[in-house]
């Protein structure tokens, strides 16, 4: 392209395109050719214009580090000592560290595993009451108001991502209601991502991973081509765990 090809108002074609892409091409008030991907205001419903997802780089994830797990427990009020009678394996766990070892080469990887927020979630398919559902923006949740605690979803989930609460709880965090007799799992910290446009925050696990300096977890909007997440996904090869099930998870991994 000829670099001298400047328009009359002093903007080069490239500059002009750059500005309009950032601002969204507005052709008339209220009508735009392209909406800018951004967080929603507090009073609007979530929409399928977004799909929240995550990219986890197992090469950066440190073996033995549990920053993400600890942050998740604190953020969501898990394991606060309420579950006294439950065995360790019965206690709520929304995110866990998994260590893998290649038997042939001896290569080891460590990765965090949680609800993969599938596009076609089996937990939603099997739920008899409609309590297990997928939000418009791709977040898979349990509506505990309708959950009867049958645990079909726990059996259907290939990632073993869900927990059941066996005991009466007292120390819930106000943003995260949890109670006996219901199933729960990672919510991608909906209470954080639903915040008003400028106050929106990453899920606690991704934030903690960044704070710990590993930067192995990138959270963002899969449908926004300009998000850091989409850029990284485009640039690097990544995999869905159990891609053979064709669930199209919102969480993808590098280095496995």
């Amino acid at each position: 392209m000829n670099k001298k090809e400047n328009s009359s108002n002093g903007l080069s074609r490239r500059q002009f395109l750059g500005t309009s892409a950032a601002a969204g091409m507005t052709i008339a008030p209220g009508i735009s050719l392209m909406s800018v991907a951004e967080a929603k205001p507090l009073d609007t419903a979530v929409s399928s214009d977004q799909r929240w997802g995550m990219l986890i780089d197992t090469n950066k994830c440190a073996k033995g580090c549990t920053s993400c797990v600890d942050a998740c427990n604190t953020e969501n009020g898990l394991n606060t000592g309420d579950e006294q009678l439950s065995r360790q394996g019965q206690k709520a766990q929304w995110i866990r560290k998994v260590d893998l070892r290649d038997k042939t080469t001896g290569h080891e990887v460590s990765l965090p595993l949680m609800c993969q927020h599938c596009e076609n979630p089996p937990c939603v398919d099997v739920c008899p009451t409609g309590a297990s559902f997928k939000r418009e923006d791709g977040v898979v949740l349990v509506d505990k108001h309708t959950c009867i605690g049958c645990r079909y979803c726990m059996m259907a989930c290939p990632y073993k991502a869900r927990s059941f609460i066996h005991e009466e709880l007292l120390n819930q965090v106000e943003d995260v209601p949890r109670g006996k007799g219901t199933v729960e799992s990672c919510t991608l910290c909906v209470h954080r991502i639903d915040e008003d446009t400028n106050k929106q925050r990453d899920p606690a696990c991704a934030e903690a991973c960044n704070t710990a300096g590993h930067k192995a977890m990138i959270f963002g909007d899969l449908k926004d081509a300009n998000s850091e997440l989409s850029k990284q996904l485009k640039k690097h090869s990544s995999k869905a765990i159990r891609a053979d099930l064709k669930l199209n998870p919102g969480v993808r991994y590098r280095g496995i």
Partner: peptide, 12 residues
């Protein structure tokens, strides 16, 4: 209510 750890941490 707890203190928010960091405001506007995300780049979406």
């Amino acid at each position: 209510s707890r203190k928010k750890t960091s405001a506007a941490g995300g780049k979406h």
